[in-house]
Nucleic acid binder design. Sequence first.
DNA 1: TCTGGGGTCCTAGGACCC
DNA 2: TCTGGGGTCCTAGGACCC
Length: 401
Amino acid sequence: MERIILHVDVNNAFLSWTAVERLKNGEKLDIRTIPAIIGGDEKQRKGVVLAKSPIAKKLGIQTGEPIYFARKKCPNLQIYKSDFKVYYKYSNSLYNLLSEYTDKIERFSIDECFMDMTNYLKNRKPYDIALEINRRVKENFGFTVNIGIANNKLLAKMASDFEKPDKIHTLYKSELSTKMWPLPVSDLFMVGKKSLPKLEKMHIKTIGDLAKKEELDLIRAFGKYGKMIWEYANGIDNSEVIFEEQEPKCIGNSVTLPYDFSDIEKIEEVLLSITEQTTYRLRKHELYASVVNVQIKTKDFKVFSHQKKMDTATNSTKIIYEESKKLLEELYKGVPIRLIGIRVDGLSHKDEIQLSIFDNHKNDKQEKIDAVIDKIKDKYGYNSITRAGKVDLEEIPDKLK
DNA sequence: TCTGGGGTCCTAGGACCC
DNA sequence: TCTGGGGTCCTAGGACCC
């Protein structure tokens, strides 16, 4: 039996949610109606566009591009700060409303959900359900969604990406050739800008061109990835809506520094503070990591990473920091550093931990210390307790001001 | 005042083992 | 004394997504 899958996508999520929150707080101006973006702090060198209003989009402003460029395209651009607390609030409201319609719902990102409606239609037409969801979200929350309806996740997602905002589209197999194949191949999910030149060389410009190529040609050129995008172009996707809570496969934090750091001790202080964040999150998931990975981005945007598998999985801040410090020392060659990141991989639960034959129970002691610190953070806020010497990222030396 | 942050998955080469 | 081949694990890098 054919499945019925819905993909619900919030239009201009961060900007819409910011607009709704402002209106709720008594502001008169709806920032969705002016040239506006949500962006990071340029002074902190985080000045990229995170979301844009329809007018900003019309002026050629793109998500991910530097605000500096965006402003050149539109001198009177209004820029608003992101507030993830607000975003999660609206994201949860949406998720709860959608959950009324099916148990098989997957949170694909903060502003997107897949819904498997196959056994939840209750004699209604998928389109009518989509209409109702669309209307209820608008009335209850004040923002709009696009909804894609199809027989699998890939096509539902492609459908929700058609004309925006506040629209419902279907993309059934019979509609592939008219609705999807004429689109540029770059519109296909998972086809990014690095693949485009290679596809171009194979005379593939549209999704239809890709679909009509021999599958083997794609596999020869791109391997596993080639098989996947060829199947996507042909509307083939058998993946299930994952409605059970998934455990993370890795956890990491990174930070772009307010200026390029050359002082290794200063870099280590930042590394400690992001290691604390990462291990705190790791412990919140009650997980243990066996691999530590440190990444740096140098001033010229070159990225380097080193990783190390440990003898025994741990979630101790101290042990993971010691490992990450070693990795940083291997990486740091004296070139000024723009970004530092840490990530832990190889996650497992306590009962799955392989104890190293050399294990000396150093975990046990550290676990108690971390538990005390976590408790204080939980009760009084994450920043209520910090390690001595922890770097304040707001602080910039006088000469650089 | 040019270029975020958090993820997942894949590949390729080297080490090591039988 | 002229040099295998299959498998697994580990590491570094990179593509893609929102």
